[in-house]
């Protein structure tokens, strides 16, 4: 009776985490294909990300219902739900950002392509590191620390790279109009947002790990 409910919730959490993880990969691929001007691949990734985001929303809602309906881990359920919500926010933001590329079609000079790719990689690494940290919270709370420090590290790296890129946009690309520069800065922020969201999840996770520690 107890274990049947538990097993299905564990499965749902795992599937949700898988979906978010895949969503981050798809976002990365989508931005890469945009930078490489591969429109077909970009559209495919965008479509995929839409599906994954919808799936993640559905899963997280189901998990939340299961938590409250069966009062699972009642002392920490609100925090766990908040944590899962914050992860859902990552994939929501990724979808929204990739959608902005499709709508606004930013002009990215070839000179800045590598910088954008690097920023993308590091920012997505922060989000990717958050997933195993959350998994480890459920399976082995004492192992959370081993994973979450990576999130903080990549987030800090992202901040540095984003600052450099913004400086480069405004100082070294004299051939661009101010509106284009501002547009590029806006897309830098979009990529940066992914790691910020991951950092927020890590903070919730840290608090939870302390709370559940006996």
């Amino acid at each position: 009776m107890f274990f049947k409910k538990t097993k299905s919730t564990i499965r749902d959490i795992d599937e949700f985490l898988d979906t978010v993880d895949q969503g981050i990969l798809v976002f990365k691929e989508g931005v890469k294909s945009y930078l490489n001007e591969d429109d077909e691949s970009f559209q495919k990734n965008l479509e995929n990300l839409y599906k994954l985001e919808a799936k993640a929303d559905k899963k997280v809602l189901r998990v939340q219902n299961e938590f409250f309906e069966h009062s699972l881990i009642p002392q920490y359920s609100a925090d766990v739900v908040k944590l899962l919500d914050s992860l859902d926010d990552i994939i929501d933001t990724a979808k929204e950002n990739l959608y902005q590329y499709d709508v606004e079609i930013p002009f990215i000079p070839k000179k800045l392509k590598d910088d954008f790719l690097k920023l993308l990689d590091v920012s997505c690494s922060a989000a990717e590191a958050a997933i195993p940290a959350v998994r480890s919270f459920f399976n082995n709370p004492s192992g959370v620390k081993d994973n979450e420090h990576r999130v903080y590290f990549y987030e800090k790296e992202t901040d540095g790279l984003a600052a450099d890129l913004k400086r480069k946009i405004f100082k070294e690309t004299k051939h661009l109009k101010l509106s284009q520069k501002i547009h590029l800065r806006y897309f830098t922020l979009h990529i940066e947002q992914i790691s910020d969201k991951a950092e927020y999840s890590a903070r919730i996770l840290s608090a939870l790990a302390i709370k559940t520690k006996d």
Partner: peptide, 15 residues
């Protein structure tokens, strides 16, 4: 410490 159990399974066992 020895037996690693999923938090939700742990919750069920504790119940």
């Amino acid at each position: 410490r020895v037996v690693k159990i999923h938090l939700l399974k742990q919750d069920a066992y504790i119940r």
